[in-house]
Nucleic acid binder design. Sequence first.
DNA 1: TATTGTTATACTCTATAACTATA
DNA 2: TATAGTTATAGAGTATAACAATA
Lengths: 160, 160
Amino acid sequence: MEPQESVTRSLAFLLGKLGQTATSRFADRLAPLGLRPRHCAVLELLSPAPLGQLALAQAVGVTPSVVVDMLDELEAVGALRRVRDSADRRRQIVEITDDGRALALSAARLAEQVDAELLDALDPAQATALREILVRVATAQGLPVTQAAPGGGRTAAPSG
Amino acid sequence: MEPQESVTRSLAFLLGKLGQTATSRFADRLAPLGLRPRHCAVLELLSPAPLGQLALAQAVGVTPSVVVDMLDELEAVGALRRVRDSADRRRQIVEITDDGRALALSAARLAEQVDAELLDALDPAQATALREILVRVATAQGLPVTQAAPGGGRTAAPSG
DNA sequence: TATTGTTATACTCTATAACTATA
DNA sequence: TATAGTTATAGAGTATAACAATA
């Protein structure tokens, strides 16, 4: 890559500022649901199968103490359950509820609305390219990204 | 654009999480310089011409009280000067110094290092496409982006 | 002694509101 | 009365460290 010699045109800065905008807008739309953006990743990662809290923390990419708070809030809304592991009583298995799945779906639709706003300046080909590239970068950086939906639509995990 | 029905694959979420990563890494590299990411935009926006603090706040996209802090810190490092406007003594004209220009340049080089890390998973054409698209989105969203560097920007891809 | 989850705490970033000094 | 800048403060988001229960 050639020298840009400009911070405001660097990916580091653009992603940071754009991410701030995107997150803030998403949070606004999510508020009526009683959710915040970070909660959504938890729900989605729990969707295919239950997880312990430490595994969840690693998957979401936050520190365990943050998971405690998020789980408290999501449990209060009825989006998930903490079940004590009978085999190892230190562990809690976190399971998503039907309400949680419904919330995750609503959240995904709201995210699409924000996306549409952000993509306003782009033609469809660029919009598609942008999403593909970002998914690739995010995956390479170890960030939580759920499996691609085959056929471009539904999330079809090996449901449990 | 088709429904994704996934938050973690939405632009809103991807940009947020990626932005967080990018900003944090950039901040780490910037720390030895006594700068943080947001300072860099100030220096760059001041580069072509001095600005008053309110104009600067609007240009950077933060609230005026934040500008005060940033300016205090940048002034302490000798990166800029606040000059009282003799025509309107309420105003302060903010001017970048030679040291400030040098810092801005160093910062841009550090940003490039972070970019290289982030772009690791992409081929050159995708990397170029990503930057162009993000600049376009950021500009459309009213975020601060300086003019393209003359002579020093492109060549890499057979950009369509 | 190590590990799971929790609590307490602190730090960063950003915004709002009240204040000052000019106008 | 309005405006430029400042101060004080509060909120969200994240991280570290100490702690309880269990292994």
